[in-house]
Amino acid sequence: MIAAAHVAGMDDITMLPVTDGTIALLNLRAQIDGLEPDVRRGHASIESRIGLIELITLRGLILGHIADYERAEEIAEQLVREAATDGTAVVARARSRAVFHRFTAALDDLDRAERLSLDAEITNRERAAIFQALGRYDEALAIREEAAGRRASFENVAALIGLYAERGEIDAAERMYADSCRRYRGVSPFPLALLDFQLGLMWMNTGRLDDARRLFDAARRRVPAYAPAQGHLAEVEAELGDIESAVARLYSLAVSSDDPDYAAQLARILGETGRAHESRHWCRFAAARYDELVACHPEAFADHAAEFWLAAGANPEKALRLARMNVEVRKTPRAYGLLAQAVAALEEKA
């Protein structure tokens, strides 16, 4: 079993070296800084603006910066206003809408891009990601398998692994993971870190916490500032009893990220370990931020906010309202599970 042995790639002589995560982040910032002035002045090409959208979105993903997602969405909306007949611009907007779980609008954009004669391979790739997020796994799988069969690029195979992992198809995900790492021929650490993270989630969701810890830690070692990997690593560490390490990680994330998930996790763990005063501080912090985000981006944050109100937030009524909203957006097993939890919590309170 790969996860029981060692993380594929970290010691594998057949793997190519990748750029250190610190350098990769400095260079990501450098790329953004290099493109942003022209975009602000309106001098950039469509390709450059799409490139900037992708780079800022990637930074938001790695660092847990919601403000980056918002900036990317802003650029994408303006781009489509100015280049309404360019299919690539419309796809860029679809992607930014999907980040905020505005899946219906995103799918509409993809249909529009196809009417503008954009290659179906491009739109289907985005469509598969949305189907996966919506829990329409069979549809996503059909697209992903066809793409990987047509061209077994690292990107296509990694996307398939992510889907297998989310569906809990452990054997398939594991089998493809090591091979995929060896196929990788780039020097950026980000794709490998994202793949490690996907596997880590799979192990966490199937209760194999030691394996989850190993994969989240692998992602963190590739890109030390990778916030979701750090956050989930902290979550797993707490479950495994390593409270101090978990708290230290989450403190750092709660301060550096504008995503309240880290503050929420920190509040929960501090509360569970008797540090009530600190817990209340982070609870208030997270509550205020969730309220802001749910007001601006309800589809994207209803589930995370519901989880918070079920845990450290201690407001099952609010959690149930948000869990119902979430199921309307995405009918996934996780969404239904969250709804059931909220119902149970309210009944218990009553």
């Binding site: 190519l16 250190d20 350098i23 260079n27 910032r29 450098a30 290099g34 020097v187």
Partner: peptide, 15 residues
């Protein structure tokens, strides 16, 4: 190397 390099650009340690 590195077109449009912003101020924080570094050479890669893997290249």
């Amino acid at each position: 190397v590195f077109p449009y390099a912003g101020p924080s650009a570094c050479f890669s340690d893997a290249v």
